[in-house]
Amino acid sequence: AEAERLPERAAEIDRRLVSLRTRAQALTTRTGQVDPVLSELRRRFTAACWQDLQHVPDQAAENVRQAEAKLKEAQQARDEQRWPDATSRLSTVRALLNTTDEAVSAAGDRLQRLNAVSKDPQQEIERTRFAIRDAQRLAMAGRQTPEQRHARPLDESVARLDRAVASLEGRHPDYWHFLTETEAVRTTVARVVAQIREERGQGA
């Protein structure tokens, strides 16, 4: 039975080899586009907005190099019919390429988000305020006063959002800090909403 599966196994590994090679090539091209993105970020935003991305081009190039080396090893293992070795190398390649993909995408995504928020921070503010108001309404539903354990994190969220908005004043605001703060506020609010729904679902 094992012998019968050999052609099938070989074909599967060949397919993965081709697919991962193509992906590695595409990532090489995309990695080359990170530098212009970074220089745009450096030119337009404060260091705090892009500092954590500085290593991306080098790291991505290194990951792709490693992936290509592992692809060669996988090809050799496949040629020698060492199937488990080939499969294991291919898994490593996929993991390396996934990491690279995420890092390369993160740089472009960062620029996009910073562009959007620097043009119109109001949208982000409104979106976050809406989430808070929605949660406050839910906390008050059918009650004279909200439960303290729900009200406190929501009040803190209001204050945190106000601080984030205030941080935008000045010549070179840290828009990335602002975005991470508004996101954190929405996460907290979503947690409170889930908690309220769960408790009320249980008749608490």
Rank of each mutant, 00 (worst) to 15 (best):
E198H: 10
V37K: 04
E199C: 06
R16L: 08
E4D: 14
T87K: 10
Q54Y: 02
Q136F: 07
P84W: 06
R127D: 07
V185C: 05
A103Q: 08
L6Y: 12
I125S: 01
T145I: 15
A184K: 10
E169R: 15
T182W: 02
L111S: 06
R44Y: 12
E199N: 09
R21A: 12
E12Q: 13
Q195F: 06
L179H: 04
A190P: 02
V56A: 05
R43M: 01
T182D: 01
L41I: 00
D134G: 14
A67I: 01
P153C: 05
V192I: 05
S88E: 07
A1F: 13
A139L: 04
R21W: 11
N98T: 12
L53H: 03
A61P: 00
T182H: 09
R149S: 15
T145D: 14
R149G: 14
A67L: 01
G201H: 02
V37R: 05
L53A: 01
E62P: 06
V34I: 06
R16Y: 07
Q66F: 08
A194P: 06
R78Q: 06
T29C: 12
T31I: 05
R191I: 06
R94T: 11
E8T: 15
W83Q: 12
K119R: 13
H150G: 14
T100E: 02
Q66T: 02
R89E: 01
A141R: 10
P36V: 09
R127W: 07
K72Q: 11
R129M: 11
V185D: 01
E147G: 11
L111M: 02
R113E: 04
Q144N: 13
S105F: 06
Q122K: 14
L20E: 04
R149T: 13
Q123D: 05
E156G: 12
R16E: 07
R197Q: 07
G170T: 05
V185E: 08
K70T: 03
V192A: 04
L114I: 00
R65Q: 01
Q59F: 02
T87Q: 15
Q136M: 09
A60N: 05
L168T: 13
S88A: 10
E73L: 14
D162R: 10
R143S: 04
S39Y: 01
V189H: 05
T99W: 03
E12A: 15
D85V: 09
V185P: 01
L17P: 09
E102N: 14
V192C: 04
L114D: 03
R171H: 10
T28W: 15
R129F: 08
G203W: 01
E80C: 13
L38H: 01
G142C: 08
E181Y: 09
T99S: 08
V64N: 00
T180F: 00
A86C: 01
R113W: 03
Q75C: 07
T99P: 08
E2T: 11
E2H: 15
A61N: 03
A135N: 07
E8H: 15
A103N: 09
S88R: 14
A61Q: 02
G108H: 09
E126G: 05
I125F: 11
A103K: 07
L179V: 00
G108R: 03
E80K: 15
W50A: 04
E102H: 13
Q112H: 02
